[in-house]
Design a protein around this nucleic acid. Structure first.
Lengths: 207, 207
DNA sequence: CCGCTTATAAGGCAAGTGTCCAATAAGCGG
DNA sequence: CCGCTTATTGGACACTTGCCTTATAAGCGG
């Protein structure tokens, strides 16, 4: 394959800052998960997608599996940071804060097929793998706490339903609609998902 | 490995009726998906699990991928048949029918890690693969129809919420709790899931 | 402008996979 | 009890994967 005249000049990617290259690989992993599913998401394929040689993966991560785990952690972190950032400034008007939370959950950025597809892979890993389960658990706690903070400020007290139950139900609605939206964004478009969330919140937190 | 004395006597599985062997392979596929995840669920591994040689897969299915699809179809069919069977006899007492439906959805048989784990793989395939999407869509229609039949008979009319929305919400609650239960059956045990479903139904279908 | 660090590339290797194929035996109809 | 169908096996092949190792060049500090 080497051209005849030259002594095997290697085309080499521009040397990038370690942090950049790392996050390139993390992003490529999410993209791979969505495009090719868990089965097609191999270390080599991720590197192909990221435009680097397969040897480089090992330079930044212990192994492909570890890359997957770190991708999960990164995704959780980014998502929570975003959700918390969106809702917190409006905590004075709880209705508005909750609304913005719903919008964020179904935003292009966080409810894209890419993200949700990857998310499902992680859910599944969480069932059989200790380390993935730990990440999932931590995420759940933080997300639950955020939701609790949001609804605990609602002006209308919930009627005859323990707070815990109400939060669990709202959380379930969010997850369920998330999947529904994932499976077909035409059948259940974003606006409808958000409207349904609002409706659920009204039913759960008003007398 | 062959014992010295005999002329390579092949240990061969008892010849089984095609239908039995087929369903063996389908069952082994579900088990594999749960135990090893989508990445570990290879044609050869499925055959190992089913106790047959790897060559046999091709005798019954076009390829491993096709086996996966047929497993999905089978699972949908079985689940719907079961749910319909559980709810229908009690259609006279709509409350009771709905209750039994909830119980069935979270029964050991249909909410086992095996089943839900497999289900997530299928959900994911449905996003990127036409044929899986078709199966998913058909399942959704039938399940939605069943749910509609159940709630449309409820004595108390729903208050200020379009029927479609109420069904969509109830369906989302079911899916969301299903996942929650899957992720940790200790954190959200079955009894709680069912109770939450009942609570949701009360909130959605009573004044 | 040189030299050192290290990011990057690429090859080798064992293991596993999907596909195809030929050989074998199980069990039925005659 | 024999012979035919076919369920079942196991091997061959090309290919991919993950892991490790060596070679190379990019770009910084001096």
């Amino acid at each position: 394959m080497a051209s005849a005249g030259e002594p095997t000049r290697l085309r080499r990617a521009r040397r990038a800052s370690p942090l950049v290259r790392r996050s390139d690989l993390l992003a490529a992993t999410v993209s791979c998960l969505a495009r090719l599913g868990p089965r097609g998401t191999t270390g080599r394929e991720i590197c192909r997608q990221a435009g680097v040689s397969h040897g480089l993966l090992r330079h930044y991560f212990r192994n492909p599996d570890n890359l997957l785990l770190e991708t999960y952690e990164q995704l959780c972190e980014d998502m929570l940071a975003h959700l918390e950032g969106v809702a917190s400034p409006f905590i004075d008007d709880p209705r508005d804060a909750l609304h913005r939370y719903f919008v964020a959950v179904f935003s292009d950025e966080w409810a894209s097929p890419e993200i949700i597809g990857a998310w499902m892979v992680f859910w599944q890993q969480a069932r059989s793998r200790e380390d993935f389960a730990a990440v999932s658990h931590a995420f759940n706690l933080r997300q639950r706490a955020l939701l609790e903070r949001l609804v605990s400020r609602l002006p209308v007290p919930l009627a005859g339903l323990p707070m815990d139950d109400a939060i669990a139900l709202l959380s379930a609605v969010l997850d369920g609609l998330w999947i529904e939206y994932y499976l077909s964004d035409t059948r259940t478009p974003r606006a409808r998902c958000i409207a349904l969330c609002e409706a659920a919140a009204r039913r759960l937190f008003a007398a």
